[in-house]
Write a protein that binds this DNA or RNA. Structure first.
Length: 354
DNA sequence: GAGTTTGAAACT
DNA sequence: CAGTTTCAAACTC
């Protein structure tokens, strides 16, 4: 992008790049989490920090951005990648999409009552959970600490997505919405999520009747927090995951063993209105294990020993140009054991299957 | 469009 | 790691 300063080593700030000059076509959907197609408006960070919604979401800035001195563009790709790498080193989940999954750390709202878009949970239309530190939570998608989860599932009005609204993820299967279903099941078992004496996580409480093409959101720590079961399920079909893949990755064994989840970064993305814009699984990639904070620790805490016996399927949103083939799935190694990294191939070769 | 509010990211 | 500062999005007027 940045037309002007072609040299990414140029001192940032020196340039007066207009992101719009670059990447206009690069990534038509490089919008933020949910604000339609508006780009970022960064002024000080050169769009190289997570403050920048484009950068944050793994996209280059584009024509719709009104940022200044932007370096988050194709032209500075190497630099962007380097910075990303650094950020990922600090926090491997940093670029994990916040779409379709609440912020990893939950929200911390103390004024907006989780009823405004300031709230990451509200913005992403998910219930607040016990990991949220919000005060006076009134999140209409579900307040934290609520045993019944979402207060109400009133249709989300979304001017952008229309019928592609996330609500379509719902099983729709009559009264058997995943929400109600899981909620019911777990509420009947107050020990949900607690490891039993065998060290097995009590995740079998996951409703096994859930549609085969759906999988619970990984960021929902339903094994610990009952209200999390109100999380919508990911709809694998929306990610072009074949049934076969789905079976491989999320077969019954996994459901019961609780090893793998799919983290879909786009499932709640209002901007995704066409299948073609949904990334496909293309390849696997090694990923450096980490010990830092983040989801893995939650998972470890949630599923205890079981988690450690299996790889963990994650996804990583790559900068893309609208081409739906850039998605890569990462099989994260669990925190301990099984070597440094895993790939989908490893997984499919069955190394981790039961 | 300017100014304010808000909460997350970054920093100390 | 808790507290503070910085930042940009969301919001209000």
């Amino acid at each position: 992008m940045a037309s002007s300063s072609g040299n990414m080593n140029e001192e940032e700030g020196a340039s007066d790049n207009n992101p719009g000059d670059l990447n206009k076509e690069m990534n038509p959907s490089s919008s933020s989490i949910n604000d339609g197609n508006r780009g970022c408006t960064c002024k000080k960070t050169q769009c190289l920090k997570l403050y920048c919604k484009c950068f944050n979401s793994g996209n280059f800035c584009n024509d719709s951005c009104s940022c200044r001195n932007c370096l988050n563009n194709e032209k500075n790709k190497d630099r962007v990648e380097e910075i990303k790498k650094n950020i990922l080193w600090r926090d491997p989940e940093a670029f994990e999409s916040k779409i379709g999954a609440r912020n990893r750390t939950g929200c911390h709202c103390y004024k907006a009552e989780c009823m405004k878009n300031h709230c990451g949970c509200f913005r992403n239309r998910v219930a607040c959970s016990l990991i949220c530190l919000c005060q006076g939570c009134k999140n209409k998608y579900g307040i934290k600490g609520s045993s019944s989860g979402a207060k109400e599932q009133e249709p989300v009005k979304d001017s952008n997505s229309g019928s592609k609204n996330v609500e379509t993820m719902d099983t729709g299967s009559s009264s058997q919405s995943p929400h109600a279903n899981s909620s019911t099941q777990l509420s009947e078992n107050s020990d949900a999520g607690m490891d039993d004496e065998m060290g097995n996580s009590n995740v079998n409480n996951i409703p096994m009747s859930m549609p085969s093409n759906q999988v619970a959101s990984p960021d929902y720590d339903f094994s610990v927090h009952q209200n999390h079961v109100d999380a919508p399920y990911y709809d694998l079909s929306r990610n072009n995951i074949t049934e076969e893949q789905s079976t491989n990755l999320f077969g019954d064994q996994d459901w019961q063993g609780q090893s793998s989840f799919l983290s879909s970064p786009l499932v709640y993305d209002d901007n995704v209105t066409e299948l073609s814009s949904i990334p496909r699984i293309q390849s696997s990639q090694q990923y450096q294990p980490h010990q830092s904070h983040g989801f893995h620790q939650q998972v470890e805490a949630s599923f205890g020993a079981m988690t450690l016996q299996h790889p963990f399927l994650r996804s990583s949103q790559q900068p893309n140009n609208g081409d739906a083939t850039n998605m890569q799935l990462l099989l994260h190694p669990h925190l301990h054991g099984h070597g440094p990294s895993s790939t989908i191939a490893d997984y499919e070769e069955n190394s981790y299957h039961s």
